[in-house]
Design a protein around this nucleic acid. Structure first.
Length: 653
DNA sequence: ACGCCATAAT
């Protein structure tokens, strides 16, 4: 009996005559061409046709190694497409009963089993993955690859402890771990973090017959870097036989994650210096570091590397590039990069939107949002955080309120606590404290620290001592170690002249061992970042160049009618001390430093770790008039673009 | 071909 199977599309010429021939005892046997057709279909991603072919075979056939290869390829395609449906159909074929001629071995074939587990896990179906894993676990000697597939499945879905438990079970069964198993166990330990177990795994690696490969060494690197063991990091780094791009990336990323931005940047420089080159991942790791530092020069250098590269940059690199420019206040560059992207994802839109919102370009943001909807991009929670906080910065209270109501109704995005916090902030800032309180009472979830924080901040702006005390009480319970909260309450008291209250808060902080963060500003000049602490920077402040510029500014300001506003000093000290403190604010010193060290007319970018004070805000405005410079000052909350005596925040912050 | 490194917010 010869059954010709014809397929409608694009079968390669060599495989056109596919036959299924009768075997000697009546069962059918695949001829080789069927296997190669399946493989070809798998490679070209035609899963439907492949499955149709398998399912329409009149009865099950004996499998050969080649069939395993074909099935394996098919599963591989399912995994990369995350096609659960096709995978399940394939699995069903593997499970078909023996009496139809099915060879029992395929069901427990390690390669196929691993792939099935992987498929289920990439689709987030851990229960199904587990049952494939457990099928035959008791009576078969399961090879290491299957254990590893299961553990990696758990890792992928964030079940770190489960992954380690699988590793332990494997050891209990006397299965020898190899490099795959080691790297997986180390990853789980690095993320948990579980340094002791990680060290134990390291010991197993040392004792193992197998030499640790590149990936295992990289995983060790990450384990130690993540746990702040710099001695071990450099020992592994120096002793590993070779370092690839990933080794460097993981070093840079670990520093960045631990807020060691300078170490991160230094490692990147060393990597470049050693001729290692970079991958897109390197740049997506280092660009946020430049963004955090407002190291625009470094960021621009990296942009040049991207442009010069012969390969097309991927979406995440360009997203990070937009973000870097946004964090440096270079909104025009953001827009240019965004517009030239050949493909964009949701993050691209959200990043640009956030950039507009934080830099105070809310109208542009609203336009972008409309364009986003027109283009058929579905907004998510982040989109609305950007818009709501943008409205809040700009004082567009009603606009923001409307947007909040529309997000669920029109766009199907349910508000989270963070959105409620934005709403409370929006109303509170506008002085509509009662409405804000109403929101807190009526919201469907328990108020978090961010909610009480927004409320407390509104009370500070509005001078509402009574409500501030209530909010602070809740806040101190939820976030007892956050110094910012204590400072805010203290400011409320100081503004109201209630020095008893200020002292009480100070005592409370002392009692709980909480220190407030010192004010600090920094500025990049060429390739160096210069940092100034409030009341510090004496070396520079005593220099002739400082005094010259400072005195010129002071004289010019006097002519413009500027009077130092010492009420921003919230301490009970005499006027003279107050004036000295204000003039020692870090942003003033940083601005002066930048004026001394950059050419006339060049824009100045200052970043600050806390909010700018009201008097410095007026001072910088005047500096922008006197020197004719654009001064972009970024604080913890937003951006201020000072130009010609005006600020982009329109004094609303 | 089961593993190492990456982006958006208050």
């Amino acid at each position: 009996m010869i059954a010709a199977i014809s397929l409608s599309t694009n079968i390669p010429a060599a495989s056109t005559n596919i036959t299924v021939t009768s075997g000697p005892n009546g069962t059918q046997k695949h001829s080789k061409p069927l296997t190669s057709t399946l493989k070809w279909l798998a490679k070209s991603g035609k899963l439907d046709e492949a499955l149709h072919l398998i399912e329409s075979s009149p009865s099950r056939l004996t499998f050969t190694e080649l069939d395993v290869e074909a099935y394996s390829l098919l599963l591989h395609t399912c995994i990369s497409r995350k096609s659960l449906e096709h995978g399940q159909r394939l699995y069903l074929q593997l499970l078909l009963p023996k009496d139809r001629g099915n060879n029992h071995s395929l069901r427990h074939n390690p390669t196929l089993k691993s792939k099935l587990i992987t498929l289920y896990s990439v689709c987030g179906r851990m229960d199904e993955a587990r049952s494939v894993f457990e099928d035959g676990l008791e009576d078969e000697q399961v090879p290491v690859s299957v254990w590893v597939a299961m553990a990696i499945g758990y890792l992928r879905n964030g079940y770190l402890v489960e992954a380690l438990l699988v590793y332990c079970d494997m050891l209990i069964r006397f299965v020898q771990p190899g490099n795959f198993a080691f790297s997986m166990a180390l990853k789980a330990c690095a993320e948990l973090p579980e340094l002791r177990v990680g060290r134990a795994v390291h010991a197993q690696i040392v004792k193992s017959i197998e030499e640790p490969d590149q990936v295992v060494n990289n995983a060790l690197l990450r384990l130690y870097a993540e746990n702040g063991c710099s001695v071990e990091v450099f020992r592994v780094f120096d002793t590993m036989p070779e370092r690839n791009v990933v080794s460097w990336n993981s070093l840079i990323a670990s520093f960045a994650r631990r807020d060691q931005v300078f170490e991160s940047l230094d490692s990147f420089r060393r990597m470049q210096g050693e001729g290692m080159g970079f991958s897109w991942v390197t740049l997506t790791t280092i660009l946020p570091v430049c963004g955090r530092l407002t190291a625009l020069n470094c960021g621009k250098e990296i942009h040049a590397q991207i442009v010069k590269s012969t390969k097309r940059p991927d979406v995440p690199v360009l997203n990070s590039l937009i973000d870097m420019y946004a964090k440096s206040g270079e909104i025009d560059y953001c827009k240019r990069v965004f517009e030239r992207m050949q493909s964009k994802d949701l993050t691209s839109w959200n990043t640009l939107l956030t950039g507009y919102a934080n830099n105070g370009f809310i109208e542009e943001g609203m336009k972008l949002f409309d364009l986003m909807i027109e283009s058929g991009v579905r907004p998510d929670g982040v989109t609305f955080i950007a818009l709501l906080s943008g409205c809040s910065h700009a004082g567009l209270t009603d606009e923001g309120r409307r947007l909040f109501n529309k997000m669920k109704l029109v766009y199907g995005v349910s508000p989270t606590v963070e959105h409620y916090a934005c709403l409370v902030d929006l109303l509170g800032r506008a002085g509509r404290i009662k409405e804000a309180l109403d929101v807190v009472e009526r919201m469907p979830m328990k108020p978090t620290g961010s909610i009480w924080g927004s409320l407390l901040n509104s009370c500070r702006l509005q001078g509402n001592v009574c409500l501030a005390e209530c909010a602070a009480k809740e806040l101190f319970e939820l976030e007892p170690t956050n110094p910012g909260n204590y400072v805010m309450l203290s400011n409320v008291y100081a503004n109201a002249g209630m020095w008893n209250g200020v002292n009480r808060v100070r005592e409370l902080m002392k009692h709980r061992g909480i220190k407030k963060d010192a004010g600090c500003s920094w500025v990049q000049i060429r390739n160096r970042i210069h940092t100034f602490l409030a009341g510090g920077g004496f070396e520079f402040r005593n220099s002739a160049e400082f005094k010259k510029v400072w005195n010129e500014l002071t004289d010019a300001m006097k002519e413009l009618g500027y009077i130092l506003d010492t009420s921003v000093v919230l301490h009970d000290v005499n006027e003279e001390t107050k004036a000295m403190w204000v003039c020692g604010h870090s942003e003033r010193v940083a601005v002066t430093f930048a004026l001394v060290h950059t050419a006339a007319g060049m824009p100045i970018r200052i970043t600050k770790n806390i909010r700018i004070c009201a008097d410095c805000h007026s001072w910088v405005k005047l500096v922008s008039v006197i020197t004719g410079r654009l001064i972009v000052l970024r604080d913890t909350n937003r951006f201020h673009h000072f130009k010609g005596g005006e600020c982009s925040c329109k004094d609303h912050w």
